[in-house]
């Protein structure tokens, strides 16, 4: 990575920026490692988590799609769950676009590596050059570490043997819990998530697997009648 950080766009980065970005990369590698291990430990072939991490590159939706299938749901339900989770990238993209003055080619390439974390980094500085350098530094660090972590985890998960013996089935909800708890800050989100989880759980015996998670979106009723203050779009990083 040293040589990458010496290219012209990255000359705007400070030493502190580089170490912040590296920390985010380490955290992503660890989540990627758990993703790979949980996938192959749960019975998926090695290529599934590796290809997913490369072409989807959105951790929570990858875990969700995997979880829906492991629970016996259909691939269609898995894709739908993943897509609804990733719909938040739509507003992220508009926010980032306002800040990054980039060529069309750079926008097309840069969009694939847009994540919660890279948006947060891009918003750290209002200077367009620094913003763009931070965005790319964080995105590239995450892309490399997430995919490397996934590949190592996938191979480890396959050699481990029975996933249940090692408690990997508990690691899956634990990862998601650590990702979601920081976002459960305001009362309406808490109420919505509580309603959604309860409805999803109660309907599980009566609906095909994978569908209850989609039905849990009824929890969005908690947002009705809310006054909209402007609040930051960024979410907490999983490592925090």
């Amino acid at each position: 990575m040293r040589t990458i950080f010496q290219t012209p766009i990255f000359k705007h980065l400070t030493r502190q920026d580089v170490s912040d970005v590296a920390l985010v990369g380490v955290a992503a590698a660890i989540v990627g490692l758990s993703f790979g291990a949980i996938a192959t430990g749960g019975g998926f072939p090695v290529w599934v988590p590796i290809v997913m991490s490369l072409v989807v590159f959105a951790g929570a939706s990858q875990f969700a799609a995997l979880g829906v299938i492991l629970a016996g749901g259909s691939p269609l339900a898995a894709v739908l769950a993943g897509l609804i989770l990733n719909a938040r990238h739509l507003p992220f993209g508009f926010t980032v676009a306002n800040r990054l003055r980039a060529s069309v080619l750079e926008r097309i390439l840069g969009s694939h590596v847009l994540t919660d974390e890279s948006l947060a980094f891009a918003l750290k500085d209002s200077d367009p050059d620094r913003s763009r350098a931070l965005y790319w530094a964080c995105s590239l660090s995450l892309f490399v570490s997430w995919n490397a972590g996934t590949a190592v985890g996938a191979i480890m998960g396959e050699t481990l043997g029975d996933a249940a013996t090692f408690g990997l089935d508990a690691a899956f909800p634990a990862v998601l819990l650590a990702l979601v708890l920081p976002a459960l800050k305001d009362r309406r989100t808490q109420a919505g998530a509580g309603i959604g989880a309860a409805v999803g759980l109660l309907l599980t015996p009566y609906l095909p697997a994978g569908v209850p998670v989609l039905v849990s979106l009824v929890g969005l009723v908690a947002l009705i009648g809310q006054k909209h203050q402007t609040e930051p779009l960024t979410r907490e990083e999983p490592a925090e």
């Binding site: 929570a60 989770l85 976002a183 309406r188 919505g192 998530a193 999803g200 849990s216 979106l217 969005l220």
Partner: peptide
Amino acid sequence: KLFTTAAVIMLLSLVISS
């Protein structure tokens, strides 16, 4: 806000059911 909350709700629902 709707998109962000939808993501949180689905994730928590997945946590609880799994």
